[in-house]
Each structure stands twice: as structure tokens, then as C-alpha cells.
Amino acid sequence: MPPIPEFGRVQELIYELQIKQVMSREVATVTPDQSISDLKNLLRVKRISGAPVVENGKLVGIISVEDLIRALSKGEMAASIRDRMTTSLITVNEESTLIEAVRKFAQLGVGRLPVVNDRHELVGIVTGGDINRALLEALGLRYEAEEKHHIVHKNLFEEISSDETSIRLKYAIASKDFGNGGKASSRMKRALETIGVPPEVRRRAAIVSYEAEMNLIIHTTRGGELSVCVSPERLQICTTDAGPGIPDIDKALRPGWSTAPHWICELGFGAGMGLVNMKRCADEMKLESTPDVGTRLEVVIYPQLHT
């Protein structure tokens, strides 16, 4: 049989991934004071074959469908779970790596293990299925990462014949939409990669557009527009908005000058370095603003200067 190239990686992953990265966090549990009859209902509804027993947050036992059958055959469905549960517990710590769970599955012939934290509180449950799924996902992600690495993007401009070619990208930016901050710039950076813009030019353009995008989100009243025009000789990034405008552009360009509200700082922005950063990445920068009318920012990067 030919060697399986992925096998070594699977082994690596088993030693790398932690139980808490693969376990299910939603666990159906019972308390010791519930009855075997309650357990029967739970197992039926959830279609599971056993459940951890939890008292005051701590894992105190485990009870399975076998315990249920035993009680059923004796006609003792009203018995408490406390009297029938297994208290010699085999658990795994959430910080352990997958190999710990894999070993216990093999040694003990069990199909699932309760996962506990350092305080012996139940935090999840891990099954063979969880581990297989996590390994497949991780292999898939790794494969994707390698694929990305190997794709050598052709330069789109070289495939298009015209007297003058340029590609225009447009993104609408909503005011105060911090959750999506950076999304437009991320899409733009990927688009530039597809077009075949060289890495250093892409990086500069992404930094400019990310800072500009955050400015539109933080400062504008009604959002604005980010547009990029790419040709082989020139990359132009423009943002426009409809206010409130910058009262004093010289001050705005001073390193450390900020009018951003304090809480923006907790997101890692608002330190008065945005425009300074843009200028550093730009070959040309123009900023025009009229209070109550709006602001227009234009940055130009010449790819030849950075390759």
C-alpha cells in the first residue's frame, strides 16, 4: 500500500489540538435527585445513550442506557439516579490534547468521555465522532491554506488587450457599523490579489483602506463610499462621505491628534494615527473637507515604486 501523506499530519494534530477545541459544549445532564424514569425521557428525546450526572456544577457520576435497562427489568423506574449511577468516573481535562481521549477510548472501550476543567466542573462531552470531525476540518483548513499558498495569481492586466485598462472596485461603508469594520478592506485586498497586484502594493493599499474605512465608520454621520481604481501603473483609493467634515485639516494630519470618542480606543483605534499611517503608505495623498458638506480623501500608490 502506498504511504498515506496525510497520516503524519493526523498524528501531529492529535498531539496539537486540545479537547476544548473539539468537544460539544451543549451537554444534556441529569441531577442525582431525578428518577430513572426522567432519564428514560431524556435519552429518548435527545436520542443519546447516557448522560453525566451533575450536582451544584460538579460532575458526580455518569448514567447510561444499560443502567436504565437494569432498572426497567427490576421494575424500579422510580429509583433515584443517585442510587444507580456510576461514580467511578473517567474524565478528560479540557486542556488535554486529543491523544488523551483517543487513548482512553481505546483502553476502556468507551465511546464518550465527560470533559472537566481544573475545578472538576463539567464543561462538555467528547465522542469519537467529535474527534474525527475536528481532524477532518483541521486537515481541510490546512489543505486550503496550502492551496492558497500555491496559487500563483496571474496578472489580470496582462490577459486583457486594450489601449488603457483599469478596474474599479466600490464598497459602501455604514456609519457606526463596528462589527463589520475591516470587511470592505478585506474584500478589497483579496480582489487586488485576484487582479495580480504585487504583495507590497497590496499591503500598502490595505492599510490605507482599512484606516480610511475605520474613519468612515467612526466619524461620519451617514457613512460613505470606498472606491479603488487599479491600473498597471497606478492604484488610487478614494473615500467620500457627506459629513460632518473636518474643521481643521492641518490638526487632523498631526500625529496623535484625535477627535474619536474614548471608547473607540478600546477597539484599538482612535489614537490619532490613521491619517499619518495612510500618508506613510501613500505616494500621494489629498484630503479635502468642508464642514457640514463632507470629506474626500484620495490616495495614490505607484506599484513600480514598491516592487
Binding site: 482599512y210 484606516e211 484599538g268 483605534f269 489614537a271 499611517n277
Partner: peptide, 24 residues
Amino acid sequence: DLMSDVLAFAKPHSVLLTGLANVH
């Protein structure tokens, strides 16, 4: 912890140490 500083100075082949843990 200041993402604008990171944007100003970070380079390819670098690692970032930060106390900020959000999507930004």
C-alpha cells in the same frame, strides 16, 4: 494594543503581541 501602530510598523514575517482580543 494600538492597531494603528501595528498598521504603521508591522511587516511581513512578523508576529504580533497584543492585549487586544477582538476581531480588529
